[in-house]
Deep mutational scan, measured.
Amino acid sequence: QTQEFDNEEEARKAEKELRKENRRVTVTQENGRWRVTWD
């Protein structure tokens, strides 16, 4: 699953929550947008 964010702060917040659920999370930056991908 993927979700896009406008800034790193929001993306990192989402990453932190997903990691609490023991998910594999990848955060990438593309064209000024932050993308959080998880399984």
Rank of each mutant, 00 (worst) to 15 (best):
Q1P: 07
Q1D: 09
Q1V: 07
Q1Y: 07
Q1F: 14
Q1M: 12
Q1W: 15
Q1T: 13
T2C: 08
T2W: 15
T2L: 06
T2V: 11
T2E: 11
T2I: 14
T2S: 14
T2P: 03
T2A: 07
Q3C: 15
Q3Y: 15
Q3E: 12
Q3T: 06
Q3F: 15
Q3R: 13
Q3H: 07
Q3M: 14
Q3S: 07
Q3W: 14
Q3L: 14
Q3V: 10
E4W: 15
E4M: 13
E4L: 15
E4C: 09
E4T: 12
E4A: 04
E4G: 04
F5P: 01
F5K: 01
F5Y: 13
F5H: 02
F5S: 00
D6R: 05
D6N: 12
D6Q: 08
D6W: 08
D6G: 07
D6A: 08
D6P: 07
D6E: 12
D6I: 07
D6V: 07
D6F: 07
N7W: 04
N7M: 05
N7H: 08
N7S: 14
N7D: 11
N7A: 04
N7I: 04
N7V: 06
N7K: 06
N7E: 07
N7R: 05
N7G: 06
E8S: 03
E8T: 01
E8F: 04
E8G: 02
E8R: 02
E8N: 02
E8Y: 09
E8W: 06
E8K: 02
E9L: 12
E9R: 07
E9C: 09
E9M: 12
E9K: 10
E9Q: 08
E9T: 10
E9I: 12
E9G: 11
E9Y: 11
E10Q: 08
E10W: 02
E10T: 05
E10R: 04
E10I: 04
E10F: 04
E10N: 03
E10L: 10
E10G: 05
A11F: 02
A11L: 03
A11H: 00
A11W: 02
A11T: 01
A11D: 00
A11V: 03
A11S: 03
R12M: 06
R12P: 01
R12L: 10
R12W: 07
R12V: 05
R12Y: 07
R12F: 07
R12G: 02
R12H: 06
R12S: 03
R12I: 06
R12C: 05
R12D: 03
R12Q: 06
R12N: 03
K13Y: 04
K13V: 07
K13Q: 09
K13G: 06
K13H: 13
K13L: 13
K13R: 13
K13M: 11
K13F: 12
K13P: 00
A14I: 12
A14Y: 10
A14P: 00
A14D: 01
A14K: 15
A14G: 03
A14V: 15
A14L: 15
E15H: 04
E15S: 06
E15R: 02
E15V: 11
E15K: 01
E15G: 04
E15Y: 09
E15I: 09
E15N: 01
E15Q: 11
E15L: 04
K16S: 10
K16Q: 10
K16M: 15
K16D: 09
K16F: 13
K16Y: 14
K16W: 08
E17L: 11
E17W: 11
E17D: 03
E17S: 06
E17N: 12
E17P: 02
E17V: 08
E17C: 12
E17M: 12
L18M: 10
L18A: 10
L18F: 10
L18Y: 07
L18N: 03
L18W: 11
R19C: 08
R19V: 11
R19D: 05
R19K: 13
R19Q: 09
R19N: 11
R19Y: 06
R19G: 07
R19T: 09
R19I: 06
K20Q: 13
K20W: 07
K20E: 08
K20H: 11
K20N: 12
K20V: 07
K20T: 10
K20Y: 08
K20M: 11
K20F: 09
E21L: 14
E21S: 12
E21K: 13
E21G: 08
E21M: 14
E21F: 13
E21H: 14
E21R: 11
N22P: 04
N22M: 09
N22S: 08
N22W: 13
N22L: 08
N22G: 15
N22Y: 15
R23W: 14
R23A: 15
R23N: 15
R23T: 13
R23F: 13
R23H: 10
R23E: 12
R23D: 12
R24E: 14
R24G: 03
R24F: 15
R24V: 15
R24L: 11
R24N: 15
V25K: 01
V25I: 06
V25W: 01
V25C: 07
V25F: 03
V25N: 00
V25R: 00
V25G: 04
V25L: 03
T26H: 11
T26I: 14
T26L: 09
T26V: 14
T26F: 11
T26G: 04
T26E: 14
T26R: 08
T26D: 05
V27Q: 00
V27N: 01
V27D: 00
V27S: 02
V27F: 03
V27M: 07
V27C: 04
V27R: 02
T28N: 07
T28L: 09
T28G: 05
T28E: 07
T28Q: 06
T28F: 12
T28D: 05
T28A: 08
T28K: 06
T28S: 10
Q29K: 14
Q29C: 10
Q29T: 11
Q29Y: 15
Q29M: 13
Q29G: 08
E30G: 02
E30L: 09
E30P: 02
E30N: 07
E30A: 08
E30H: 12
E30D: 09
E30I: 12
N31G: 15
N31H: 06
N31V: 03
N31A: 06
N31F: 08
N31T: 02
N31M: 09
N31K: 08
N31S: 08
N31Y: 04
G32Q: 02
G32N: 06
G32H: 04
G32F: 03
G32I: 02
G32M: 05
G32E: 05
G32R: 03
G32K: 04
G32W: 02
G32D: 08
G32S: 05
R33L: 11
R33M: 12
R33F: 11
R33G: 05
R33W: 06
R33V: 14
R33S: 05
R33D: 02
R33N: 08
R33Y: 11
W34M: 00
W34F: 06
W34E: 00
W34V: 01
W34L: 01
W34T: 00
W34A: 00
W34S: 00
W34H: 01
W34K: 00
W34P: 00
W34G: 00
R35L: 15
R35S: 09
R35M: 14
R35W: 12
R35C: 04
R35G: 02
R35P: 00
R35Q: 11
V36Q: 01
V36L: 06
V36H: 01
V36S: 00
V36G: 00
V36R: 00
V36F: 01
V36Y: 00
V36W: 00
T37R: 08
T37M: 05
T37D: 06
T37H: 04
T37F: 09
T37N: 09
T37W: 14
T37L: 06
T37K: 09
T37A: 04
W38A: 05
W38S: 06
W38N: 02
W38P: 03
W38Y: 06
W38E: 04
W38I: 06
W38K: 02
W38D: 03
W38H: 05
W38G: 02
D39P: 04
D39V: 14
D39Y: 09
D39E: 15
D39G: 11
D39K: 04
D39W: 14
D39F: 15
D39S: 13
D39A: 10
